[in-house]
Design a protein around this nucleic acid. Structure first.
Lengths: 115, 115
DNA sequence: TCACTACATCATTATATGATGATATGTTAA
DNA sequence: TTAACATATCATCATATAATGATGTAGTGA
């Protein structure tokens, strides 16, 4: 009965979704140091070029990063300082609640190794 | 070549994953007002009991919420103020980059309505 | 033009995961 | 004990999505 709220939640969920993948996080962390070209990001993260490009598209669509064409290079950078702020707060939060998170595996089956 | 970093990224990704779903966000927003029982959350969010319980398990495992048994009720609350902080920053960020996010649909096919 | 580089965009596949409905567990009251 | 309530768990399904490999596109220099 509150559709405006719903769409807002959907937007926020998508925003966080940008942060909810290790590969994307590694890209964001790399961009946190300084702006980088795609091949630079590939080197920094060890991910494949295709994979990086896909994630960058997502991050760009989500507004977390910005791209600037520069000759045959595309230079990416974080679009806002608050992107880094979120990462920092997450780090702080993690250091306190990590014990609970390290096995946040609702949908992963862990086979009991102590049979 | 940097396994400790990798695991840290995985943890952080899981943390953000707790925020990356509209249903979970609605639960977190509800808990932001005050602590609630499960049935209270069900009413506040309009989600099914089963669904809420599943998401609460995930949020609990992720350390974002805490549960306290109280008779036959289970009372949930946010485990840390920074959980709310992250939501606030996300709101602020959203108000600026919403234009880019509203169509962060890398994997959704949008059929061109203007054929 | 041709070759090379830098990057983006498919198509495909395997897996993750959100939702649902049914069932199980546990608590309280009669 | 029985019934009712509150919550958790399970099986199932449909969808989302991360990764890969191949291909397409564009810029640059020879």
């Amino acid at each position: 009965m509150l559709p405006p709220e719903k769409s807002k939640l959907a937007l926020k969920a998508k925003l966080f979704r940008g942060f909810s993948d290790p590969s994307r996080l590694s890209i964001l962390e790399a961009l946190r140091e300084h702006q980088r070209t795609v091949s630079d990001i590939v080197k920094a993260t060890g991910l494949s070029q295709s994979n990086v490009s896909n994630h960058l598209s997502c991050l760009r669509d989500c507004g977390l990063v910005m791209a600037e064409q520069n000759g045959r290079y595309t230079v990416y950078r974080l679009s806002d300082d608050r992107v880094g702020d979120l990462l920092t707060i997450a780090d702080l939060l993690l250091s306190d609640v990590a014990r609970g998170i390290y096995e946040c595996t609702r949908y992963e089956i862990e086979q009991p190794s102590n049979s």
